[in-house]
Design a protein around this nucleic acid. Structure first.
Lengths: 136, 136
DNA sequence: TGATTAGATTTAGTCAGTTAAACGACAGGT
DNA sequence: ACCTGTCGTTTAACTGACTAAATCTAATCA
């Protein structure tokens, strides 16, 4: 279960696909070129690599290919986060959060948002034996 | 500010150094070999690379070198976390925490620990209005 | 039809990380 | 003085992530 990791360009491609659900190589290239320069052939090469990794697949549409993700962003974040916590914080998720809270590079707004999340979570778990109600 | 990122072996080496403060190449090799096989010369090569990156430095001691870290674990975690949040969660630290809280792979014990951290933080910041207070 | 265009594929080269053998220097023991 | 083990250095090879030109292929246009 190794090498699930994506390189920079690979991640950019996946992000475009997650955002649009499906896209041609050309559309992906154009989308990326909106923020940073990349050659079309590079994108195509990386799409092939991503296909080998089973992160995306393609389907002919007219005379071109349409690519779509095989992995959801949430799934990817899941394994990327697990990897990261394992590597950098020895598996301690709370160690990571402690670091975030101490960190000057996390804005006070973000910290407030984090606190809200925790309170939310606390509220949820107090009434968790029943099936949970969602109020938007 | 270029590639501050460390490879797998590089990280193992740094972890040994953070743990012991100073160590010879041989000691590092032995420490790593406690958990996974690595050739001594590989460690030496990586130490050279880490030295180029200014992550470690060495000092002659007797007729061998003693290596020591130039970067603290905390500093490293700082930049690694910042990078990670930027790449995977689009810069949103709260997005990361939200993910951790939802994640099945984080134990309830860890989640409780995280909640405790937040409460702690809240207590801290109530007595901290000297530096700056947030708008909440 | 022949030229242009646009997509897909092949090929090739860089760079970082890793791996480790080979090599040279030198202290300590015999 | 010589052998040997340990040390650091040099060199080489291999992989994965990129990068992109060159090339092939099929459709479209003048």
């Amino acid at each position: 279960m190794e090498s699930k990791q994506l390189g920079h360009v690979q991640l950019l491609i996946m992000q475009v696909l997650w955002h649009r659900d499906r896209a041609t190589a050309r559309e992906i290239t154009d989308a990326i070129n909106g923020t940073e320069p990349i050659a079309h052939s590079t994108v195509q090469t990386m799409l092939r690599v991503l296909e080998d990794k089973m992160a995306v697949a393609h389907e002919p549409q007219g005379r071109t290919f349409v690519f779509f993700p095989l992995v959801t962003e949430s799934e990817f974040r899941q394994s990327a986060t697990q990897d990261f916590v394992e590597r950098i914080f020895g598996g301690s998720a709370s160690g990571l959060v402690a670091h975030l809270l101490k960190s000057d590079s996390v804005s006070s707004g973000e910290i407030a948002a984090i606190r809200r999340l925790i309170e939310q979570q606390a509220a949820d778990s107090s009434g968790r034996n029943k099936n949970r109600r969602n109020e938007s």
